[in-house]
Design a binder for these strands. Structure first.
Lengths: 350, 350
DNA sequence: GTGAAAGCGCTAACAT
DNA sequence: ATGTTAGCGCTTTCAC
């Protein structure tokens, strides 16, 4: 039982398949209404749906894109994906989701597979990737949008979305300084990730702008997960002097910190202000709710897809078109930040 | 600059495209090694990759499946997706991810699109769906695996994966009873969802098995989200008598309950035992860590994909093959459950 | 062992 | 306003 084809419809409607094709593609200009209706009725009757596969073979468009993410379980990505998907849906596109699981070889494999499938474009949103991927895509002439927080990008002519961490982090530091904080610390992500460096640098610069020597600011490495935050807070406790405000590289880290402060009887924000970054949904649900630098994830996804469409619209030239955008971050004030404790460093209980 | 085709390879290797096709599909049986090598070299040299689109047109297989989920932001789905993806990858399949956002029309649209794209199969994992979807898929002869916790299934001949909530929930209740609990309550999901009913029924039956009249067990409706849990706990507090153990329909609800107990100074598990269901990663990270009935999400995904492949292997007949499986749930004991408080009902503070 | 030719289900000139 | 004819890039008989 094979699917009904355009030929059968043509036969049923007593026209040629060219005519059927015309009504399919809405080429109503030169079509007698009566025949159009007749064809449409036949289509209905036979429950005919044109094969995208056959269409793609001639049109050279699959209306399909591939999205590579590091790990969809990471709360960052689902929101990005929603943005991508909603933009894609509007243009009638479908999206292949590919988890690299932080595995470059797996990513390479997916890239190949996507190229073979003749996707119209690829979105790379993995936190790290290999140049090889870009090379493959480039020589297959597949447009790419890259979520740019890796240093490798430079030197390659790919379209990118970059995140302006500075803006939001500056606002956050200002907020803390206004509360009287002068002793800060930072819990970063894995130090080899560019995004970790970006966030740390933005923070230290912002702090420096308020006359605080960045060299005096303790920086502890986390892993962008809750347990990393706990661990970091633990280490922080052995410092001779506790800071009054803590900036974590992401919300999960901040949440871990929160958990650990509670275990040690440190009151947030009375004794310690804690600041996250991301604004995942969980941030609003913690106790206390987390003050954080919001990263517009949905918008990032949406934008990435839009940029891709921009690329797709332009007549595919032999040279690579490049488009780029910067995405803003903003401060969301909740309950985990407050006035700096007066007098002594926070008391340690427990 | 169009992609290189099988013809060019044939020309370069000085053979016919039939021969190239043979080496592509590993038809080495009747091929002289020397020619095979020659062709392979040409393939390398031209960086030739056969078009999946063209292949699909003849082979009638796209090596592609569609997965419909309600909302990939729901922590339940990413794990399922990983399972699906890993199984799919092993067989060289790619997967379209489609969020219905709990919108039946959107789901319908995706189904149509997937059919048009000639996917080899569809996995439906939305918490609710419409019969229409199944009808469309059936008449297009597209195999479906359904994550079955909706009543609509019955009467339709679809392959399903069902979840055996009973087993895990029974174990959980037993665990609580052994700790002396006799006064239970349940915070369910939206009452119209079959899965909500299943969980509630399983719980009440398990409780009844220990000689407790289910009619005396308070049941409050939640929404499977944290805020629903908070709200439910709030309502619970106005009851004349507080239970000593609470079973929530899922972990997020339980986490919300935990948050609210803290706000009201109720100690968990000393005054109240709280039990969740799902075992999302967050469950291990809460304070206290959540005791929960684990739902093997990764395995569900893996299994779903495997079942689909089973269907795909069978010669596509005119009648619909049906395969089905039951997935087990298990109890994971952590810190949110403990001995029932002795004497009076828990004291309310704050 | 390898080639020629037909066909998969469409679209897009080019005719009429 | 509609039909005819080539492809699109492969796979697959069927010959030789």
């Amino acid at each position: 039982m094979s699917r009904t084809t355009i030929d059968e419809v043509a036969k049923a409607a007593g026209v040629s398949k060219a005519t059927v094709s015309r009504v399919l593609s809405g080429n109503h200009k030169h079509l007698r209404t009566s025949t159009r209706l007749r064809v449409e009725k036949a289509i209905q009757a036979l429950n005919f749906r044109p094969s995208s596969v056959a269409r793609s073979l001639t049109s050279k468009r699959t209306h399909t894109v591939g999205v590579l993410v590091a790990d969809i379980s990471n709360p960052f990505y689902p929101d990005v994906f929603h943005g991508i998907e909603d933009s894609a849906l509007k243009e009638g596109y479908s999206v292949f989701l590919c988890n690299t699981n932080y595995d470059l070889a797996r990513g390479k494999h997916y890239i190949q597979s996507l190229i073979d499938k003749r996707v119209d474009g690829v979105l790379i949103m993995t936190s790290s990737f290999s140049q090889e991927w870009l090379v493959e895509l480039e020589r297959s002439n597949v447009p790419v949008i890259l979520l740019d927080w890796e240093v490798q990008t430079r030197g390659h002519n790919v379209s990118t979305i970059a995140v302006d961490f500075q803006r939001g982090i500056q606002a956050a530091v200002e907020h803390l300084v206004q509360w009287g904080h002068r002793r800060f610390a930072h819990v970063g992500g894995p130090p080899h990730l560019q995004t970790s460096k970006d966030r740390r640098t933005a923070f230290l610069q912002a702090v420096a702008a308020h006359g605080i020597d960045p060299a005096t600011v303790p920086v502890i490495d986390g892993n962008l997960r809750i347990d990393g935050g706990r661990q970091a807070m633990h280490e922080l406790l052995s410092l001779p002097e506790l800071p009054t405000a803590l900036f974590a590289a992401n919300d999960l880290t901040a949440l871990g910190i929160l958990l650990e402060t509670r275990a040690h009887g440190i009151a947030v924000p009375e004794q310690l202000s804690v600041l996250g970054l991301d604004d995942i949904w969980l941030a609003a649900q913690s106790d206390p709710p987390l003050t954080t630098v919001a990263l517009p994830r949905y918008e990032i996804g949406q934008l990435a897809m839009r940029l891709l469409f921009e690329l797709l619209e332009k007549p595919r030239a032999d040279y690579i078109e490049v488009v780029s955008t910067l995405v803003r971050t903003t401060l969301v004030v909740r309950g985990s930040t407050g006035p700096a404790p007066t007098g002594e460093a926070p008391v340690r209980v427990g």
